[in-house]
Amino acid sequence: MTTSSGGSEGFRVGAGESPGDAVLRCVAAEKGCEVLDLAPLQDTIDVHALDQLFEAPGVEALEFSYEGFDVSVEPDRIYLTEQQ
């Protein structure tokens, strides 16, 4: 697997940005396209649950596949690894 340009530091989740919106922004940046050009994230993961997940104590990360990337979501960072 190849690490994306988010690198080992990943992409920062912006202040006030939901995890779902951050995933879309980061994947679109990696693919060089607009967010609207991506498949609906809701078809891959429950976006409402993703956005609420880190409000629960003890949750450190969530991983899933989307648009050719393995996505790891942490409370303040998004990591993308291109699938081979």
Rank of each mutant, 00 (worst) to 15 (best):
G14T: 09
P57A: 13
E67G: 05
E34T: 15
C26E: 01
P19E: 00
D51T: 06
V23S: 04
V35Q: 11
A29K: 10
V27G: 03
S72G: 09
D21T: 09
T2M: 14
P19W: 01
L38D: 00
V73Q: 00
L24H: 09
G58D: 06
E30L: 03
D43F: 08
E63M: 11
S18Q: 06
D46L: 09
P19L: 02
G32F: 03
V73W: 01
G32Q: 04
Y79F: 10
S8F: 15
E67Q: 10
D21P: 05
G58L: 09
A39C: 10
G16I: 04
D46T: 09
A56V: 15
Y66A: 02
V13I: 14
D76C: 11
A22W: 00
D37L: 07
D37G: 06
Q42E: 15
A22T: 03
I78M: 01
G10S: 01
L62W: 07
G10N: 01
L36Q: 15
D46M: 07
S65F: 11
S18D: 03
E82W: 11
D76V: 12
D46F: 08
E60S: 13
I45M: 06
A49C: 14
D70E: 14
G7E: 04
L80G: 00
V59I: 14
G68W: 04
S18F: 03
A49S: 14
M1D: 11
Q42H: 13
R25T: 06
G58Q: 08
L53I: 11
L50I: 06
D51Y: 05
D43M: 10
E17L: 01
E82K: 15
L53Q: 08
V47W: 05
V27T: 06
H48G: 14
G14M: 10
D21K: 10
G58V: 09
F11M: 05
V23E: 01
V27H: 02
S8V: 15
K31E: 07
S72H: 08
A28V: 06
L80K: 00
T44K: 13
A29F: 08
P75F: 02
D51W: 05
G16M: 01
A61C: 09
T81M: 10
E60A: 12
G16F: 02
V13M: 05
D51H: 04
R12G: 09
Q84S: 14
L50T: 05
V71P: 00
E74F: 12
R77Y: 06
D43C: 09
V73D: 00
R12F: 11
F11C: 05
Q42A: 15
A29N: 08
S18N: 05
F11R: 04
G58K: 08
D37H: 07
G14R: 13
D70P: 02
S18V: 05
